[in-house]
């Protein structure tokens, strides 16, 4: 294989795909942090829940994974609203550490419920393999990667329009900047919080479905992605949705590209250390730029 082609096919495209998935997960994490001021550790398991809801759609109605997305998004939004109503809302007045710890508990509950209902085996949306197709006569890409990339861009664009062009988006940004000031101007924080859960949950569901589509569906799949997703959110600056988009792509690309043989011969970094790359970026950011690339001030 030609060196440039190998770079695109084996490093760049996978990096973009996992970057898109991280970004979708990180946006939810960061939006929730902005509005609720706590790190939602159950977010990875919310992704898993979305993936399994889509699996139900695929299994029951024979849907294409893309067509199962609305079902997964709606179901996951309901799940998030339920979690918020029963677990987080009653704790809202307590220190944010209490909420953070309780989100660990919620994560365990979601995972255990999934294992109880669906079992512990790995499952999949589409049986068999999908041969890659040639694009422009040279690059090889699998159909689902085109779907994943395009859907991720479309969703991010939709989020951008929502945040900049609608009253809800403005209210969300206002609450994120200063909850007290927002309340004084008559914004209902409860409503904003609910919509934030719907948006964050829906995007997490999409991330989960894509993750399961590209690999396999497993009860631990979301939890295992929590580290790169947190790294992406921190890289972009917690509370900054645009930062999370860039952060996700950067983490995804960095993981894949770090093992490209840049100096010729062997991989620059053994692919066994991919997870370490996300972790190293996160630690470095926390030390030198704790507000992230797009953060402005220390909170």
């Amino acid at each position: 294989m030609d060196q440039a082609l190998m770079f695109v096919n084996a490093y760049l495209i996978p990096g973009l795909v996992s970057g898109s998935i991280y970004a979708l997960g990180a946006i939810g994490l960061t939006l929730l942090f902005g509005v609720l001021r706590f790190t939602h550790f159950a977010h990875g398991d919310v992704m898993t829940a979305g993936a399994y809801l889509a699996l139900a759609g695929v299994g029951l109605f024979g849907l294409h994974p893309i067509m199962a997305l609305p079902l997964a998004m709606a179901g996951t939004s309901l799940l998030c609203l339920g979690i918020n109503h029963f677990f987080y809302a009653p704790l809202m007045k307590r220190p944010s550490l209490v909420l953070t710890i309780s989100s660990f508990g919620v994560a365990l509950m979601i995972r255990a419920a999934i294992q109880l209902i669906y079992g512990v085996e790995s499952q999949y949306y589409v049986r068999g393999i999908q041969k890659s197709r040639e694009v422009f006569g040279t690059f090889r890409i699998v159909d689902r990667h085109i779907w994943i990339g395009c859907s991720a861009v479309a969703l991010m664009l939709a989020l951008h329009l929502l945040l900049t062009r609608t009253r809800l988006g403005k209210a969300m940004r206002a609450v994120s900047d200063s909850p007290d000031l927002a309340r004084l101007t008559g914004i209902s924080t409860t409503t904003v919080i609910r919509y934030t859960w719907v948006i964050g949950g829906s995007l997490a569901a999409v991330a989960g479905v894509f993750l399961g589509w590209d690999g396999y569906v497993h009860a631990n799949m979301g939890w295992d992605q929590l580290l790169p997703i947190s790294a992406a959110a921190i890289l972009g600056g917690l509370g900054r949705p645009y930062g999370a988009m860039v952060g996700g792509l950067v983490i995804g690309m960095a993981e894949e590209l770090s093992s490209y043989p840049w100096l010729g011969g062997d991989a620059l970094l053994s692919p066994g250390y991919k997870t370490g790359v996300a972790f190293a970026i996160m630690v470095a950011m926390l030390i030198w730029r704790p507000n992230g690339l797009f953060g402005e001030k220390v909170r």
Partner: peptide
């Protein structure tokens, strides 16, 4: 000859290196 980390989403980079 390469070791790989469990539970990752893509192993295409590893595979490209191995196939080379």
């Amino acid at each position: 000859d390469s070791v790989h980390e469990d539970k990752k989403e893509s192993y295409r980079a590893e595979l490209a290196t191995l196939a080379s």
